[in-house]
Design a protein around this nucleic acid. Structure first.
Lengths: 233, 233
DNA sequence: GAAGAATTCAAACAAATGTTTTAAGCTGTC
DNA sequence: GACAGCTTAAAACATTTGTTTGAATTCTTC
């Protein structure tokens, strides 16, 4: 028999007052705490007891609400992954619509770069969830290929079709490589910022995110045009 | 009193015949096994018992030879990290020397790209160690900042000085950003190859490493020249 | 306010963790 | 062959792990 676990039910009842500090119902507190601890110490590095005590609830709550540590982890990712991907794709679609399907290359790149990083912009939650994503890229604690299927592929395809329309003179076989280059720069930007901040590396300058994005736009646009020129000659 | 643990001693005694299969002395077998298991399941995901049974030795050996699981992990990384970094830097220096300190941009980039990926070229060991490095970037199990100090910074500085000489008309304040872009592409190339292979993603084409490198060289060279042009105007 | 459901709690579970201990085995030297 | 030193071995160590249990408590509903 399949057991069903409780959702927060906040939309239905809404009777629980949010007690400041440990706000909200236990289920939500657990989700927030899990997002923080999982991203800080990884899945295996976070114990159910850590979670419970940080969320200010009993150990059994994890199993009561989610049916286990693993299911909780899935829930944490599911809560953000899909919305995040949707934002990125929507942002591309918007640019496409505003430019009658033929946007200027820089505009498209800028929109994508912003959409890629923006969901991670609000400092606190940002680096936490990015850490989680980075972990997930390395060894998935997720069932099957949810991460690749629901995040990577949709994002890449949206960017791919966008690029083809922005640069009609582009060899389509090269587009996937180009998308990889852009995404690689973006991922690395977020990564290295995090990595270099924890080790206070005096030798390596710190960048403002806005300047990094403008650089990536300019750098990538030039790289792409190199291909477009070549084709049109 | 500080305890000293045994090294392999293979250079001194060389008396133990390598028993095929589990070849070499226990200490070396443990190092190899640890490299594999740590990269596959992470530090916390690998138990001392896993290590011992995979290496075909007793549980106590880990403590006997290395003084603990943590020390073994350090040793595994130390064994490859520094040599790897040296190869990369040497490769850049070589190009600089061969071109009297003013290499063609594409040549420099190609040398760097190859040196970056080549140590990871021999399939088996490659992805294993790259996985380890990726893990290390996310949460360091290493003491202090060994990774950033011994790997990241030296590599970046070498590339930085190389770039400045290859492109005299380059705004030096932009060089760090450019280096980030190149490294970001390279890291992502290795990453995504691994990630997408485990999830058999039919939608995303697989690339030959050689072609990826040539793409990154071309793409980046164009991006860099965009800056160089701007300055010289 | 009482019945019944939903939630919280402390305690206990078996299994797995890294490390230590103590004894046995091995190797080379005299 | 006996001694010494290094290496391996099995067992036990104390913790910690995720999960389950069953009773206590709180909340909801009538």
């Amino acid at each position: 028999m399949k057991q069903v676990f409780k959702d927060s039910g906040v939309a239905i009842s809404e009777k629980k007052k949010t007690i400041e500090g440990n706000a909200g119902p236990v289920r939500d507190r657990l989700l927030d705490t899990a997002e923080r601890l999982f991203s800080e110490h990884g899945f295996e590095g976070t114990s159910v007891r850590d979670l419970a005590s940080a969320a200010g609830c009993n150990i059994a709550s994890v199993n009561y609400y989610f049916g286990g540590k693993e299911k909780l982890y899935e829930e944490v990712l599911r809560r953000h992954l899909i919305p995040m991907t949707d934002i990125r794709i929507a942002s591309i679609d918007k640019v496409m619509a505003q430019s009658n399907g033929k946007p200027e290359l820089e505009v498209l790149l800028r929109a994508f770069a912003n959409a890629f990083i923006e969901p991670l912009a609000d400092e606190a939650r940002a680096s936490r969830f990015m850490k989680l994503m980075a972990r997930e890229m390395i060894d998935s604690n997720l069932p099957s290929d949810m991460f690749v299927k629901d995040v990577i592929i949709p994002t890449m395809t949206a960017m791919r079709t966008g690029l083809v329309k922005a640069c009609p003179g582009l060899d389509e076989s090269k587009v996937p490589l180009i998308v990889h280059s852009v995404i690689g720069q973006l991922v690395h930007a977020v990564h290295s910022e995090r990595m270099l901040e924890q080790a206070k590396a005096a030798d390596i300058p710190k960048f403002e995110l806005a300047k990094v994005i403008e650089h990536i736009v300019k750098f990538s646009a030039a790289g792409i045009r190199a291909y477009a020129r070549e084709k049109s000659e």
